[in-house]
């Protein structure tokens, strides 16, 4: 099951990259399609066990829906993060208070924690330095507002947690 979903995803990525459909003539490029099949098969056979424990979530449409909902939500915070960093960088005095804080997440699967860490890195003033298996994240914060664990958790983690749980768990 896991290998089948991996195969499908790999093949879709291949098709997007190669784009075997010519719009002007309306013809499909069978050569690329076939090579893609072989390439995806080889990768699945060689690296099928290297992927995370539960890649079968890739086939559930409900999760894809929540992933689509997540995109604009995430884009908003990403944009906000960039304006904030741009402001800090261009400000003559650079009003920064950097530090590393510790936050906890209730997400359990490794994929979800990875996604959360990546989201944190791309959003306001925070960068994930390290993550533990038990859901503890060490986050570098360019403008520390709360040094305590709980408050920092509320400020940094909670806005993504619910969304990511619906997508990955």
């Amino acid at each position: 099951m896991r290998k089948i979903s991996m195969f499908v995803v790999l093949y879709v990525v291949w098709c997007l990259l190669v784009f075997p459909y010519d719009r002007t003539t309306g013809q499909w490029d069978t050569q690329s399609l076939l090579v893609g099949l072989v390439a995806a098969l080889v990768v699945v056979v060689l690296f099928g066990n290297a992927l995370p424990d539960r890649s079968c979530f890739l086939l559930a449409p409900r999760r894809w829906f929540w992933a689509l909902v997540y995109i604009p939500f995430f884009a908003y915070y990403c944009l906000k993060a960039n304006l904030e960093v741009a402001y800090l960088v261009l400000h003559p005095d650079m009003p920064i208070r950097p530090g590393i804080v510790k936050v906890r997440t209730s997400l359990r699967t490794r994929v979800a924690i990875t996604a959360l860490a990546n989201s944190i890195t791309l959003t306001p003033g925070t960068l994930t330095v390290d993550a533990d298996e038990d859901g503890t994240l060490y986050v570098h914060w360019i403008d520390v507002k709360f040094a305590e664990d709980d408050e920092a958790t509320r400020e940094i983690v909670s806005r993504f947690e619910g969304h990511l749980r619906r997508i990955f768990e």
Binding site: V89, L90, I96
Partner: peptide
């Protein structure tokens, strides 16, 4: 902006912040 941050910020961690966020977006 990301490049300006890379030059102006004090240490590697803050520089990474500017480098990843601004350059990614």
């Amino acid at each position: 902006f990301g490049c300006v941050g890379l030059v102006r910020l004090p240490d590697i961690y803050t520089r990474l912040q500017a480098a990843t966020k601004c350059v990614t977006l």
